Simulated scan of single mutants.
Amino acid sequence: MATALFVIDIQNDLATDPGTRIPHAARIRAAGDKILSVARAVLDGRGASPPSPGLIVFVQHEEKPEDGTLVRGSEPWKLVFEPRRDAPEELLISKWTRDTFESNPDLASELKGLGVTDIIAFGIQSECCVESTCNGALAAGFGVTVLSGAHSTYDSGGKTAEEIEREVEERLRLKGTKVVPWEEAVAAWE
């Protein structure tokens, strides 16, 4: 049993630009920094064993110029956290739809070929690409965990980002996803 950690769309436009970032971008960046430092220490130190990740998948959303700001090569499109070039267990996956698996039809079989049975997800935006990618992973037969406190979005529809985060977690929980505070997950890896 191997686990893949999905780092979803933590890109400059959503996470660092003062004019466009989500309200809780600083929380997501801080959580991501700690999650990745522990996951990488585990990978580098002893090889991963459950429940720690054996693979880190960095997901990067792309848009056409007429559709948005996340245009390949642009500053808004760049990742806050990038895969290390010399680390074969760190992958970069581009996507054009909310669901990473829909954008990459061979991804599920490639991950299963590497022995991946479970996916742990965090990132931006909760009700868009995080939820859709978790649903895609569930549909592909993976066990899924979403890291509570390590995903967020914009305030929308009269709801705060935190309210949307909780609603997404509840919808995913009802479909069989585990919802774990990111601090607990990281503590279990160490």
Rank of each mutant, 00 (worst) to 15 (best):
M1Y: 14
M1E: 09
A2W: 09
T3R: 08
A4S: 13
A4F: 11
F6K: 01
V7E: 14
I8P: 00
I10R: 02
I10T: 10
Q11N: 04
D13G: 12
A15N: 00
T16E: 07
D17S: 09
G19M: 13
T20Y: 05
R21F: 05
H24L: 14
A25M: 08
A25G: 03
A26G: 01
R27K: 13
I28R: 04
R29I: 07
G32N: 00
G32K: 02
D33C: 06
D33Y: 06
D33N: 12
S37T: 14
S37V: 12
V38I: 11
A39D: 01
V42G: 00
D44W: 00
D44L: 08
D44A: 12
R46Y: 06
G47S: 07
S49R: 15
S49G: 15
Q60W: 10
Q60S: 15
E62Y: 10
K64C: 08
P65T: 03
P65W: 04
T69S: 15
T69K: 14
V71T: 13
E75N: 09
K78P: 04
V80G: 05
F81C: 05
P83G: 09
R84A: 11
K95I: 05
T97V: 15
T97M: 12
R98T: 12
T100M: 03
E102F: 13
S103G: 12
S103A: 06
A108K: 08
S109Q: 15
S109C: 10
E110M: 13
L111T: 01
G113T: 01
L114V: 06
V116N: 07
I119L: 14
A121W: 02
F122E: 01
I124Q: 01
Q125D: 15
E127P: 07
V130S: 10
S132E: 15
T133Y: 09
C134W: 00
C134T: 01
N135H: 13
G136E: 05
A140Y: 04
G143E: 08
G143Q: 04
V144F: 08
A150M: 06
S152T: 05
S152K: 01
T153W: 06
Y154R: 11
Y154H: 08
G157N: 13
G158S: 05
K159N: 12
T160I: 01
E163Y: 13
E165D: 14
E170W: 11
E170I: 11
L172P: 02
L172Y: 01
R173K: 15
L174Q: 01
K175H: 04
G176Y: 00
K178T: 03
V180I: 09
P181F: 05
W182Y: 14
E184P: 02
V186A: 00
A187F: 05
W189G: 02
